[in-house]
Design a protein around this nucleic acid. Structure first.
Lengths: 201, 201
DNA sequence: GATCGGTCTTGCCAGTGTCAAGATACTGTG
DNA sequence: CACAGTATCTTGACACTGGCAAGACCGATC
């Protein structure tokens, strides 16, 4: 229970950080357990003890990603009374947090690399989802026609995650069509969110 | 220029198909050049000659993915005059094509695995994007307030791609909240698209 | 029929994930 | 304080991977 144990203060924590750095640097495909161990200054098998296998470590990184997203979105929501304006701010915060933690968020929803049935993962995903859900539910009370809150929440989530995934492609296509680069990703997120909120009715 | 060459009729084509099958089966993380070669019945270095390296083969698979998406969306659009109804049908077709070609579409936008500067890739992406753009442009002529066509197109694209990525998570969260499973992915796509089109004004 | 370029194979290397076994440091108990 | 036990980490091994170099083979061209 002591904070400092053995060689490192907290090797498990350090491994998660180093892994996220490595993914940010080389992409999820360039990730390697042994390189993580090397950068952390431990032997190649040390991560196994804490995380079982590569999937275990990547799952831990994904959980950290979800917590970062959750924290950023919650923080952005604070103090905004109008639920529509709040949802727009949350969308912006979501994509900006993804950009601020590229290593973490690059693996957050990678079904082939992460064990998405891990209880901690599900819990973290629930928490992040819940923040959006609550705000959409508030909006739903103000719409002319009834709005399915679950569907509407999923829509917002999918849009923001899709934007994170495709923003670089959008830049490329914008320039190829001579439309110039799109605005910063946070601004795009706001534009998207405003159209969606309008579509809620 | 003959159709049949050497051992196989068209090894490059066969390798792309086998690679897509393998990714569909094991996920993008389970992909392996040597396993692809094994399944195609050739030596482990045969793919190198056609695609250079693993990125080359995966880029080819991604290009096939974009072409599948393009074809499916174009096909779905045919014969629908109302651009709003057409866009909804295209959204459905997009996600259903992704579900029908999971191996291809799992790598279509994976910046760490695919060379997205490949001219053929850019061309295929342009083509798919263009179909959406044209329909959104038609819609934009009917809106009360002016609609930025580029932004609106990107919104639709991001939403559909995000849905493809997150649908399994949505299923999980829906069941955990006792809301039951969401509808089939094509139906969700329609629901999303209808809200978005409404938001276009 | 010899030559030659395109196609594929064989062999090799460093690097990887995972497992088993051992060494080391911390912890609690007498 | 001694000693045993456990969590932590290391070492060593294995099969596997991607990429390279060298060679073998086929098919067509002169």
């Amino acid at each position: 229970m002591n904070d400092k144990s053995y060689h490192h203060g907290d090797l498990a924590q350090e491994l998660r950080l180093v892994a996220a750095d490595l993914i940010a640097e080389r992409g999820a495909g360039g990730f390697s357990l042994r390189e993580v161990a090397r950068r952390a200054g431990v032997s190649h098998a040390a991560p196994t003890h804490h995380f079982g296998d590569a999937t275990g470590l990547l799952t831990a990184v994904a959980i950290d990603a979800l917590r970062h997203l959750h924290a950023a979105v919650t923080n952005a929501a604070e103090g905004i009374d109008d639920p529509r304006r709040r949802l727009v701010a949350m969308g912006r915060a979501y994509v900006e947090a993804s950009a601020a933690h590229p290593g973490h968020c690059a693996v957050a929803f990678r079904h082939d690399l992460v064990n998405e049935t891990d209880p901690s993962y599900l819990e973290a995903a629930d928490a992040a989802h819940g923040v959006f859900f609550a705000t959409v539910a508030e909006i739903a009370e103000t719409t002319a026609e009834p709005l399915d809150v679950g569907t509407a929440t999923s829509l917002g989530w999918a849009t923001m995650q899709g934007l994170v995934e495709l923003y670089s492609n959008m830049e490329e296509i914008g320039e190829r069509h001579g439309q110039g680069s799109p605005p910063p990703i946070g601004t795009v997120a706001e534009q998207f969110a405003e159209i969606i909120v309008k579509g809620f009715g």
